[in-house]
Amino acid sequence: MKTSPFPATSARPLAADPHRQAFLLLRTVFTVAPIIFGLDKFTNLLTDWTMYLAPAATAVVPLPAQTIMYVVGVVEILAGIAVAVRPRFGSALVAAWLLGIIINLMVLGGFYDVALRDFGLLVAALALNRLSPRRAA
């Protein structure tokens, strides 16, 4: 029984291995995107991230919304690094994080389109988890 779908000495070139291609695409996206979005929590260049934070979150965590976004940014950066280093673990972490974001957006209301998009990303993170070797090189 194989423990990894991607043997270290694969005879198939990358161009002929669609499973490996899918893994690399998803791993790259779920490494780069969380890091970029995490960094943007400190600059707000893409958007004002605090508008996506449900007031219930600031009621539970007694910090200003921007401070919470700094914490969110750090978590997202760490999640991206985790996907790069340990994709099986990192993809599960990203999926759980996306579930939290979806719940926050549903509580907030008005951003159901973003919640639906994030649900698609959650499914893609779970697909990465399934494609990830048990012990990534």
Rank of each mutant, 00 (worst) to 15 (best):
T67R: 05
T3G: 13
Q21P: 00
P64W: 02
A79G: 01
L63M: 09
N104F: 01
N129P: 01
V60N: 03
A22F: 03
A127C: 11
L121W: 13
L116R: 15
E76C: 07
A95C: 07
L45R: 13
L53N: 00
T28L: 15
W97Q: 04
A82F: 06
M51F: 13
W49P: 06
Y70L: 03
N104H: 03
A92W: 12
G38C: 07
K41I: 01
I101P: 01
R88C: 08
P34I: 05
D118W: 02
F37R: 07
V71A: 15
F37N: 10
L46D: 05
L105G: 00
P34A: 09
V60M: 15
A84H: 10
E76A: 05
T9C: 03
G38N: 01
Q66A: 12
V29Y: 14
V60I: 15
A56F: 06
V60D: 04
L116V: 14
G120Q: 11
P62C: 03
T47D: 14
R88I: 09
L63C: 04
F23G: 06
G100L: 08
L122K: 08
Q21C: 05
R88T: 01
T50E: 05
A33I: 14
S91Q: 08
R12F: 02
G100D: 10
R134L: 14
G110Y: 10
L93S: 02
V72H: 10
T43A: 14
L131P: 03
F111I: 01
A8E: 10
P18W: 13
V72L: 07
M69C: 06
Q21E: 08
L131A: 07
V123T: 09
D113V: 06
A125K: 06
P13D: 12
D17Y: 07
F111S: 08
P87E: 04
P133Q: 12
A137I: 04
A115V: 08
S91R: 03
D48I: 12
F119Y: 12
V32P: 00
Y70C: 01
G38S: 10
S91W: 08
L14E: 09
H19T: 10
A54P: 04
H19R: 14
T58R: 08
I36W: 12
A16G: 02
S4A: 12
V107E: 07
I101Y: 13
P5T: 05
A59Y: 10
T3E: 09
S132H: 08
V29M: 15
P5R: 03
T28C: 11
T43G: 00
W49L: 06
A95P: 01
T58W: 00
V71L: 13
L26P: 02
L14W: 14
A11H: 11
V85S: 11
V71E: 00
L122Y: 11
V32D: 04
V72M: 05
G90V: 01
G120H: 10
A79M: 04
L126S: 01
F23Q: 03
F37E: 04
I102L: 13
P62E: 09
L25C: 13
N104P: 02
I35P: 02
K2H: 11
R27M: 12
T9G: 12
G38M: 06
A95S: 09
P133D: 14
T50W: 03
